[in-house]
Amino acid sequence: MAGAVTTVTTLSNEARPKHLTEPRPVRYLLIAVALLFIGIVVVLPMLTVLLEAFRKGWSAYIEALKDPDAMAALRLTLITALIAVPLNTIFGVAAAWAITKFKFRGKNLLVTLIDLPFAVSPVISGLVYILLFGAQGFFGPWLMDHDMKIVFATPGIVLATMFVTFPFVARELLPLMEAQGVQDEEAAVSLGSKGWRTFFKVTLPNIKWGLLYGIILCNARAMGEFGAVSVVSGHIRGETNTLPLHIEILYNEYQYTSSFAVASLLMLLAIITLVIKGLIEGKLARSRHGQ
């Protein structure tokens, strides 16, 4: 459901006829209210991150990012995303193929279940893995006997991230592939094309922008997830800290400048994500109209 907010929108720039719009003062007032709201609620926090990050100058900023713990956090964040995002992408494509290209009973239920992680509080997304793999959990004793660690270690962080970002790719592909139907693939198959070949030559070119769209949103969330990861991480500096967790530790230690410096990295990721998203949306709108 949270993914439902990523609807592709196109902005029209035509002026409306006079009798179908509001008087000029009302228009200006509404625009002012909208800008003020977005300004205070969205832009002000972003400015704060930048100003606080550079409060002690450029060299302090670079210093904060070069800190070994920050680098370790960056590495763990990248590793986590590098595992979680491809797996969720493969899942998203497989699920979308099964759901949109075939008829079967229980389809609506399956779609609802895929959406579930959006409805679950991040804290619970972490908690469920503690219950499975923690010392008191179902598999806890077995893991301990075999000297394996899942929670309070990297595997737990990856699992919690996978849970939280689970629906992203599937969510983007489902409406797109539903709209595209099965004609292209059926034509290819009737001409003798094999399964994988049909997918790579026919389906993939049709869905590439939607797929990319889902992947970058999935990635942004994977790198930025805080609540779920916080529950399973164990907060060991330099070992089980991701970037968002590192921000928290620095902040709680009153190292505000360093904290905001690391935060500015993640903000940059968010901005890049949205810029790419904007670029893809144009292509996506065109590929949808082309159908």
């Binding site: 949270a2 907010v5 990523t6 929108t9 902005l11 909208a34 800008l35 977005i38 969205v42 832009v43 926090p45 972003m46 704060t48 991150v49 606080e52 949103l217 942004a220 790198m223 930025g224 997830e225 805080f226 609540g227 970037l243 968002p244 967790l245 921000i247 928290e248 902040y251 904290s259 905001f260 935060a263 993640l266 903000m267 968010a270 901005i271 994500t273 949205l274 810029v275 998203k277 904007g278």
Partner: peptide, 20 residues
């Protein structure tokens, strides 16, 4: 402005938390 609307969705919550 249209792009900024998505910022709360893309910005990690911890970043928003310390900024606010």
């Amino acid at each position: 402005v249209d792009g900024l609307v998505d910022i709360p969705f893309a910005l990690p919550t911890a970043v928003a938390g310390i900024a606010l």
